[in-house]
Amino acid sequence: MSRVKALPFLSLVLSLAVFLSGITFYPSQAKADSVPLVPNGGFEQVANGIPLQWSVISGTAASSANQVHSGNYSVELSDSSSAAPVGLRSQKMQVARTRI
Rank of each mutant, 00 (worst) to 15 (best):
M1G: 04
S2C: 02
R3N: 03
R3M: 08
V4N: 00
V4K: 02
V4G: 00
L7E: 01
F9A: 09
F9K: 03
L10N: 00
L10C: 01
L12S: 13
V13Q: 01
V13F: 05
L14W: 03
L14Y: 09
S15W: 04
A17H: 03
A17Y: 06
F19P: 02
F19R: 05
F19T: 07
S21D: 04
S21E: 01
S21G: 12
G22V: 03
I23M: 11
T24G: 01
Y26V: 10
Y26R: 10
S28Y: 10
A30W: 06
A30H: 10
K31Q: 14
S34W: 08
S34Y: 07
V35N: 07
V35G: 00
L37A: 15
V38F: 12
P39Q: 12
N40T: 09
G41P: 09
G41M: 08
Q45C: 04
N48Y: 06
G49R: 02
G49Q: 03
W54E: 04
W54G: 06
S55D: 15
V56R: 05
V56S: 04
I57Y: 08
S58I: 13
S58T: 15
S58E: 14
G59R: 09
T60C: 01
A62W: 04
A62I: 11
A65R: 13
N66S: 12
Q67G: 03
V68Y: 00
H69T: 15
N72Q: 09
N72M: 04
N72C: 00
Y73W: 10
V75H: 10
E76P: 00
S78E: 14
S78I: 14
S78N: 13
D79R: 13
D79Y: 02
A83M: 07
A84D: 13
P85M: 04
P85Y: 08
V86G: 00
V86F: 07
L88N: 11
S90Q: 11
Q94A: 08
Q94R: 05
R97K: 07
T98L: 07
R99W: 02
I100S: 06
